[in-house]
Design a protein around this nucleic acid. Structure first.
Lengths: 342, 342
DNA sequence: CTGAAAGCGCTTACAG
DNA sequence: CTGAAAGCGCTTACAG
């Protein structure tokens, strides 16, 4: 039991060749059923496990997917956005369900992450997940493309974007939640969250929000849009900035729940009642959105489905099947912060 | 650029042997600095990356750690305990900091997870993380031990336990939070969470809680202990059970925050005011504990430190250095649910 | 400091 | 259905 058993040991004990052992263990139809069972029994007894390094080296695939989580370098190191954590959970499960292993890595945008995993043969493909300035990683995406790395990106569906993307329908999400606000009588709607090409997901939510206002014959107030990255602190600071403008507003659409949490704190500190004076809504439906006071009205992204689709799309891609980008539905979750229940 | 470059291609271009390339790329002192730089330049230009499967196979180590997250089979599939998610984040970071990759896998207790990863040479060692019946996985721990698998377990520090464990000081955590409750005038203290050998972490918290009561000359009310696993639903059901006993109590120590969230919901549904009528405290300090109403008084486990220690201990173990089990400090976090701020 | 050679443990044509 | 042999791309004694 000192050193681990190899296929040769099994072959010896079974009185067959090593090739036959290899075949039997992979359930090849080329091997006699009886022989196969005998070999399997011996393998089990010796607690034999195929050496993945050897089989991967030989077969040139790893049955492993790498998940690269990249974060905005300006955000706090210690806390990971709960939305990503939730995605991580569902991706892990989906990998397991498909017989793939998952290699997880956090990346800073400055780092040289591109291609690392697949080039290194540690993974057959990559899932990219994260916020951050889209323009910054655009170039790296092209490098992945050039190296013929198989990858799937979570985020916005963009025109002329390289590769495959899976995204929530951010435009519709932003549209629906704003329409809901308008239906509840709000007319002066602010938006907190970066609204530019650099943050395509937030930008889509913003565009959806604007369109809902236009469709309701409300004037979009561009001056009520304040940039923020997806942290509580950033949301808090942005809300203060918004307040400092001294322009009237009765609702704030936040680009994420984390931002909304910070915004609500800032409003409370300034004695502004949510939702009475100002309605606040978020995006993501992270677990704690149910527990804020007031409980957050938000847009749910189905992380379970998203993880499944990301993994299955990537695996299909790895196997050379045709795959396309896909948009996933956004679901409005009505709670208290929008003033629905007063 | 079709097929990937190998060390032979580089050797050819640099006019040296493949061995020299291998040495140069690993910064061996055995190679002439000039030669090394030349080789490195070529490697970079070709976008060459060492094939990990080949190098792992040859060197018999993978520089990869496997994280096995096992969960109570009775708990809900879709939601992962946020405490574990937080640990997952810090473990991922710690692995990155130490130059290791992290393979993540969810396991059900029934599955044959033991040994899989190391035997398979996919990982150099394993971190085990999860709740579940301790007795159930005790046997598997012994199998790991027998296979000489390097692993570190997160959980309780037990007598006669095989292997290395890293744990929060659950006894002190339970003691301190109960002492705080008593200092605030509570005398009839219930406990929700399994308190038996099968759940050593919860049991330690319970024992700490009991000792605090004894030290304060309060009688421990064993009938006020109700089993629960760490989910909101289970906490909710357990609180109802407790109420049904019709015995007076003015505080509930919950074995985890998730349980406490369910307990608070149950009490509210029964028109019982928290913390006025009954104080409720949790354990873990998960992100949402700050957002419950009332905000949860709890015990923080430093997940960042825990992840770092887990990873560093495992790596030291892998390298054959002597390692020992360790207990990490528990910190009382006072918020509203204990009645501290009335 | 460098090179030729062996070998890590498999999978997979190839031949029968 | 089975076996002998090559080879995946490295690392590492061994010899110089």
């Amino acid at each position: 039991m000192k050193s681990k058993a190899t296929s040769f040991d099994i072959a010896h004990l079974a009185g067959v060749s090593q090739s036959t052992v290899s075949r039997a263990l992979r359930n090849s139809p080329l091997v006699n059923p009886e022989t196969r069972e005998r070999i399997k029994a011996i393998a089990k007894e010796l607690n034999y496990k195929v050496d993945k390094n050897a089989s991967n080296l030989r077969s040139q695939q790893s049955h492993t997917i790498a998940l690269l989580l990249f974060e905005d370098p300006t955000s706090d190191e210690s806390q990971i956005n709960p939305f990503f954590l939730s995605m991580l959970g569902s991706i892990t499960r989906a990998c397991g369900d498909n017989g793939y292993d998952l290699l997880v890595s956090f990346q800073r945008l400055e780092e040289n992450w591109h291609a690392e995993y697949e080039d290194t043969h540690k993974a057959d493909g990559i899932i990219l997940l994260g916020y951050g300035d889209y323009n910054d990683y655009q170039e790296k995406l092209h490098q992945l493309e050039q190296n013929q790395t198989r990858y799937v990106l979570w985020g916005a569906l963009q025109q002329d974007q390289p590769g495959i993307s899976i995204a929530c329908d951010n435009f519709t999400g932003g549209y629906e939640i704003t329409r809901h606000l308008i239906a509840k009588g709000r007319t002066k709607i602010a938006f907190i969250g970066s609204a530019s090409e650099g943050s395509p997901e937030f930008f889509d939510r913003y565009k959806g929000s604007c369109e809902a206002q236009t469709d309701a014959n409300l004037a979009v107030r561009k001056s009520l849009q304040i940039d923020a990255i997806t942290t509580e602190q950033s949301g808090y600071a942005a809300a203060l900035q918004l307040l400092a403008k001294q322009q009237p507003f009765d609702a704030i659409v936040c680009a994420s729940d984390l931002i909304a949490v910070g915004v609500i704190k800032a409003l409370r500190d300034k004695q502004i009642n949510v939702p009475k004076d100002v309605a606040v809504v978020g995006y993501d439906n992270i677990p704690l959105s149910e527990f804020t006071r007031p409980a957050l009205t938000t847009v749910q992204q189905d992380t379970k489905l998203a993880g499944k689709i990301l993994v299955e799309t990537l695996i299909a891609h790895i196997h050379g099947k045709p795959v396309t980008s896909r948009s996933l539905p956004a679901t409005l979750i009505v709670r208290e912060s929008c003033g629905a229940i007063l």
